[in-house]
């Protein structure tokens, strides 16, 4: 099922679409990221595992500059995010230019963050019209197609407050996709959902992965990581501890920290892990 993505990944000489180099981030005295390095190639699905507080969400939020790193750099599509390289200095970009860079990435949040004062359709159409300046009728057509692909075409005129958590999260995925991003960032997309609603969101994410989208997914869903991910990254205490294909990191972890984490997780959702 992941043959199409695998073939695009294995092309040698491909430049990474997201490159994280020696990333450091502190909140006050708390050092959350201590030198993180990661390369993500076009078409890859990378899942990030780790305990809460291991810095995985912070790392994800550095990719679209919702967090400003203390040092190190993030590059998306060859551009340094948030800075302009001039000689041997990095000049901070204006918000307008950062906004331009953010169009390359789409983000899905743990708490959906749909705009509650807009209908589902308005949620989807707002950014393409205001940010990309696209024609309304054209965007509406595309938005409807995306809503249909996440199974919510009939909810176009509903307000987010009337939808279930799973439906809201699927709308949030469609809202990110309608901007035509190069990379999709998922920040624990199923953690706020009732257990019976997790499946419908993961299903949408799986079909998105099959379509060849580059995805970076912070999650606790081991089953999803094993089934869909090309690369699994295990983070602990602000560092990448172990990295590799799921068959290695999940099924035969080398590091003790990874083993301990997977054991604790295995106890929690043992039935779904198999």
């Amino acid at each position: 099922m992941s043959t199409s993505t695998a073939s695009s990944v294995t092309q040698a000489g491909d430049a990474p679409i997201v490159r994280i180099v020696d990333l450091h981030k502190s909140f006050g005295h708390l050092e959350v990221l201590k030198s993180v390095n990661l390369d993500v190639y076009p078409g890859q699905v990378v899942t990030i595992l780790g305990r809460s507080g291991s810095g995985k969400s912070t790392m994800l939020r550095c990719i679209n500059h919702l967090e400003k790193p203390n040092s190190g750099a993030v590059m998306v599509c060859g551009e340094v995010v948030g800075y302009q390289v001039k000689g041997n200095r990095l000049h901070e970009l204006r918000l307008r230019d950062i906004a331009r860079q953010r169009k390359l990435t789409g983000m899905v949040f743990q708490s959906y963050n749909l705009f509650p004062h807009m209908t589902v359709m308005e949620n989807l159409m707002e950014a393409p019209q205001r940010v990309l300046g696209r024609n309304g009728a054209e965007v509406r057509e595309e938005a409807l197609r995306l809503l249909d692909s996440v199974g919510l075409a009939d909810k176009a005129d509903a307000y987010p407050g009337t939808l279930s958590g799973g439906q809201q999260q699927r709308v949030a995925i469609a809202r990110a996709l309608v901007m035509n991003p190069r990379v999709m960032l998922f920040d624990e997309p199923t953690s706020a959902l009732d257990p019976e609603l997790v499946g419908e969101v993961l299903e949408v994410m799986k079909s998105l992965a099959r379509s060849g989208m580059t995805m970076i997914v912070v999650t606790h869903e081991i089953g999803f990581a094993r089934q869909v991910a090309d690369e699994v990254v295990f983070m602990a205490e602000g560092r990448v501890v172990e990295q590799g294909p799921p068959s290695q990191v999940i099924d035969a972890p080398r590091e003790e920290a990874t083993r301990t984490f997977l054991r604790s997780l295995g106890q929690r959702n043992a039935p779904t892990a198999t």
Binding site: E126, A127, A176
Partner: peptide, 16 residues
Amino acid sequence: GHQTEAALALGMNRSV
């Protein structure tokens, strides 16, 4: 504050 984050992540500028 999540609303601001969601808007920024979609590439909106401060005024929009």
